[in-house]
Design a protein around this nucleic acid. Structure first.
Lengths: 190, 190
DNA sequence: CCATTAACGCATCGATCACTGCGAGAATCA
DNA sequence: TGATTCTCGCAGTGATCGATGCGTTAATGG
């Protein structure tokens, strides 16, 4: 794998076993609380209690709920995605869009995105988009190197990324595979 | 100052002068707090204090911050928009998209949208989209009645509405008029 | 114009939150 | 391995939140 996962955003001077364990427990507690129907207020004492960690630790490591959510969203949207490289831009985009749709369909993801952009502002929003721009650019540059007429990053963002996020966040319609594939088809007509 | 903004008899059995005045003050306080850089926690006592109203009133009328935000977002996204009717679908969509872009560029709007979908969940999200689907459908039906080949509501949503919302909420790029017009051009090529 | 009643102001209470020293335990480096 | 220091657990505190009971004000209908 070419893209090695970034070290903890917290200037980790000691990412030892215990710290990593606590970090994982807190992240898991946040995701569980977000998916739980019990409308618990998602506050630091609640997160800490569910994670089996003392609230002081969470306050010191993350400081606020916004930074905690940003951290969770960052690690959620940075590691999993693998940029396809099939030799065809259409195929690449279809796979990429399908992966993104699958990701956004995950029951954990939608509440996380909503809470993050609602609590963490600009920083949280950019954490939710992750590195999609760079990933798109990689696919487009490969296609351009093949000598094809390649759309811009902006165009692909508007035609593929934006509808996926919009439909997931603002509507209750499902992100079906057919609809997702249709986005690429509308962008790249035969 | 007598800003009679046409108090609509939204809900309640007694929409008298005082209730409307309080409602307007609370709405205004929410918007001010959302735009203020002072990261005040946007809680009911804070909103009530800034509105010059006692917190008990806000608790009883709205119940929670989520419902309050949903109410603010609903009245923010329901009244202002006028569906264009120029006789040309392209012209209609360009005006509609331009109005929407102007609306989303308002410094009040972005924090309101983010906070609403982050706090009020599905209900808040649908409040932020308002009645766009019906408005789109009205324009499309008129175009279809003219005997043209009209795109579907879904297609227009994906091509115009979604990029506007996505760019406003998730990125820090500006919603320029040229880019907004380009969305319609990509949807309706000559 | 007056009775009715919905809506608001006020005082208050328990629960929880955000935060802070201080000591103990674990990870890192010599 | 031993010393250092980064990190976590613990107990406690002021502040604020969410909610309730009661009296008062004002909007509504006859």
């Amino acid at each position: 794998m070419s893209t090695r996962a970034a070290p903890p955003p917290h200037t980790g001077s000691r990412p030892g076993g215990r710290s990593a364990r606590i970090r994982a427990a807190v992240h898991r507690a946040v995701e569980e609380l977000l998916t739980d129907e019990a409308d618990e207020p998602l506050t630091i004492p609640v997160v800490a209690a569910r994670a089996g960690v003392h609230a002081t630790t969470v306050y010191r490591r993350w400081g606020s709920v916004g930074e905690l959510l940003t951290d969770v969203a960052t690690s959620r949207f940075s590691g999993d995605i693998v940029v396809p490289d099939t030799g065809s831009l259409r195929e690449d985009l279809e796979r990429y869009a399908s992966d993104l749709a699958k990701d956004l369909n995950d029951p954990d993801t939608l509440p996380l995105v909503r809470a993050t952009i609602g609590t963490a502002g600009d920083q949280g929003a950019s954490a939710c988009t992750g590195e999609r721009r760079q990933q798109l650019q990689a696919m487009l540059e490969r296609d351009q190197a093949r000598g094809n007429q390649t759309p811009t990053v902006e165009r692909v963002t508007d035609a593929v990324i934006a509808p996926l996020y919009y439909r997931a966040v603002f509507t209750d319609q499902a992100l079906t595979p057919e609809w997702t594939r249709g986005l690429v088809t509308n962008l790249l007509p035969d």
